[in-house]
Amino acid sequence: MRFFSKKQLLLVCSLAFLLIVISACGNDSNDTSSENSDETKGSEVTIEGKKGEVTIPADVERIIAPYHEDALLALGVTPVAKWSIGKSVQDYLEPQLKDVPRIEWNLPQEQVLEHNPDLLVLGSDLASYEGSYEDYQKIAPTYVMPEDVSNNWRKQIEVFGKMLGKEDKADEVLAAYEEKVAKAKEKLSNSIGDESIAMIWVAGDQFYLLEKDRHSAEVVYSELGINVPPFVESLGKSKVAWNPISMEKLSELKADHVFLLALEGEQGLETLEKSAVWQSIPAAEKDQVYVMNDPSFWTNKGLIASQKTIDALVDTLVK
């Protein structure tokens, strides 16, 4: 049998003690790493929707929210698919969404499955979708907006912020928007005073005068405080369907400024140019008719749409 000398025994004990310390430090490091990972990982959120409570998974990444992409993008979130009707999309969002694949507006289930979403966000009108709420729930957690959220882009941003752990971001972008409105309101007041504005969407050879609460008109009249022409006031509140207006009726439009929302080459623009009736309205006589070649944000609601409307007004009217 071999015996260790005192010197050798001391060396062995020292090495054993060192290994124990190293092992303990390694475990502490792993524990700390695990704790840090848990701290940075998001947590589930339960939120009340039109169809009851929905639990939103932590750190969702693949979101489909057709026609509500404006609110997602405002929070810095890109959806996995974007709303479309055939090849038609929300053009004003294309700078951010040009590489995102389209999904049909009524959400066919096979198309939804192709994108493998981990969250679906639907508007309040479930009848407009091809599948039922139960069908979509089988694919991914599905939140259906209550009417007051579906119809209010500010509330959408707040709800999406809560869903996605971006409540601070939601507060930030909404505050920045209010500041933008205040600055633009002052500039426009100094520039055009109490003059009035009307907006007409030109599609083909049809003309649609925006009521005071429809899409961008709400920004113009309610938020920026610009005067409503009497004829627009007489239209009352907007209805779901757009109703074209005749050229004869347009002759009653006593607006100081008119914005024509029309893609380049629309037939209606040529019709107006050749119409003696149109040329006799105050805005045309003062050469204060402006053609806006991207109608998409004027005919939509959302933070980004509203920002673009404000920018277009200021760029056009503030000298």
Rank of each mutant, 00 (worst) to 15 (best):
V144T: 09
M199V: 13
E179S: 14
E167Y: 04
V159A: 14
E186H: 08
I157P: 01
D213R: 01
E147N: 13
E158L: 15
G161M: 02
M145K: 08
E186D: 14
D148V: 13
Y143L: 13
V173W: 04
N151W: 05
A198I: 11
E211M: 08
N151G: 15
S216E: 05
I139M: 07
E211L: 01
Y177N: 08
A140P: 02
V149N: 05
M145E: 11
L210E: 04
A217V: 02
K183N: 15
K212S: 09
K169Y: 00
R214H: 13
L164Q: 07
E195S: 09
H215R: 13
A170C: 06
Y177W: 14
G161R: 01
K212W: 08
S216L: 09
F207I: 10
A217Q: 00
I197C: 03
S191T: 12
V149S: 07
G165D: 09
K155P: 00
A217F: 01
E211I: 03
I192V: 08
V173N: 10
E178I: 04
W153R: 01
D135Y: 05
N151D: 13
K212G: 00
W201D: 02
S191K: 04
V144K: 00
G165A: 08
Q156C: 01
V173A: 10
K185F: 12
S150N: 12
W153K: 00
A198W: 01
E211T: 15
K183A: 15
G161F: 00
H215L: 13
L164G: 09
D194F: 00
L174E: 04
I139N: 01
S191G: 04
S189V: 06
A203P: 00
I139R: 01
L209R: 02
V149D: 03
E167G: 03
S150W: 02
K187G: 03
D194K: 14
M163S: 06
K183P: 07
L164E: 00
P146K: 02
A175G: 08
V159S: 09
N152D: 15
V202H: 02
L188E: 03
D135I: 08
M163V: 11
R154N: 11
F207C: 07
A182L: 09
A184S: 10
Q137L: 07
Y136G: 09
D205G: 10
Y177A: 09
N190P: 03
K169S: 11
G193H: 06
Y208W: 11
I192A: 04
E167M: 01
N152Y: 01
W201V: 07
T142W: 00
E195G: 06
A182V: 05
P141T: 07
H215Y: 15
A170E: 10
H215Q: 14
E167D: 09
V144L: 07
N152A: 08
Y136R: 05
E195V: 05
L174G: 03
K185L: 09
P146D: 14
K162Y: 04
G165V: 13
L209E: 07
G161S: 05
E179W: 06
L164K: 09
P141M: 06
K185D: 03
D135T: 12
S216V: 08
D171P: 03
E179P: 04
K169P: 06
D194M: 05
S189G: 15
